[in-house]
Computed example of a mutant assay.
Amino acid sequence: MAVHAHPDDESSKGAATTARYAAEGVEVLVVTCTGGERGDVLNPSYAVPEGHSFDTLEAKRAVRRLEMAAAAQALGVQQHWLGFVDSGLPEGDPLPPLPDDAFALVPLEEAAAPLVEAVRRFRPHVITTYDPSGGYPHPDHIYTHTVTAEAWEAAGDASRYVVDGGAEPWTPLKLYYNHGFSVERLRTVHEAMLGAGLESPFGDWISSRTAREIPERPVTTKVPVAEFFARRDAALTAHASQIDPAGFFFAVPRDVEADVWPWEEYELAESRVETSIPEDDLFAGIRGTEVAR
């Protein structure tokens, strides 16, 4: 189960991993907390699909559901909406208040309840989500971490989140944080592009992160996924309102990426099974054991 804040996050964070496991026959469910209703059009070549508009929250939600369905098909995964409303990314100094209907303002037990139920019904062995910073300071990403941590703790506890007709408690075994853009990855790809005589998009980014002394979280697990980059890219471009096919995500030639960085990175945050670090499989310690059945 991969828990994400908005439609498109599942395609930019861990997408090749979900595609790989789905192709191997693992049941994979992407859970999307919000409808992405407050996202702007980020693709300059985007054209709203016929019969749709992008003028209201409801209209944006409908478009982004179409995009999410196409992305899930590209990855070969199942997908489930929690049904909360995008908080938007506040900007300014001081920051404006969040909208009253924002996901990030929903009380924790109310926000976590549908995710707890989803965990109990889907019964995942492994859950992936964001670290406590959210990966970047969007309120929905930070709250997605909080809500997922609550579900990780509560889903197996029969005394918590008790509802009539609800699923039986289920205890997941491993919780991971996505790591999409570690400095090590950026520097490795940057140097490979320069070595190939190509212009790299990462130079300023590496310098700014180093200058700001942003702490690097530990990477415990590198999952080999190069043969699934094409599915990841297809899922990205399915989010046509958000992803520019001539933009940042496609700046690195895939043969260069596959040669120098054929993995997706994760941090094992918590485990209820024994495993050895470093790992190359999210199911390390689970495969071939009784708990996998």
Rank of each mutant, 00 (worst) to 15 (best):
R123T: 10
Y176M: 00
A158E: 15
Y143N: 10
Y136R: 00
G135W: 03
T171F: 04
I142T: 11
G166R: 05
L173T: 13
A154S: 14
Y143C: 02
Y176R: 00
V163W: 03
T171D: 10
V126N: 07
W170R: 02
H141F: 01
P169I: 01
W152Y: 12
V147C: 11
V163S: 14
Y136P: 00
P172Q: 09
K174M: 13
G165K: 09
G134E: 05
G135K: 03
Y176V: 00
G134S: 05
D131W: 10
D157A: 07
R120S: 03
H145I: 06
H125R: 15
P124R: 10
T146F: 13
P172H: 04
F122E: 00
K174Q: 15
E168F: 11
V126D: 07
T148P: 12
Y143E: 12
A158L: 06
D131L: 05
A155H: 10
V119F: 07
T129F: 14
G165D: 09
Y136V: 06
P137N: 05
Y176I: 00
D131E: 14
G156Q: 01
A167C: 08
P132C: 10
P137T: 00
R121I: 07
H125A: 14
I142N: 04
T148A: 11
Y177F: 15
Y176A: 00
K174V: 02
D140T: 04
W152E: 09
A151F: 09
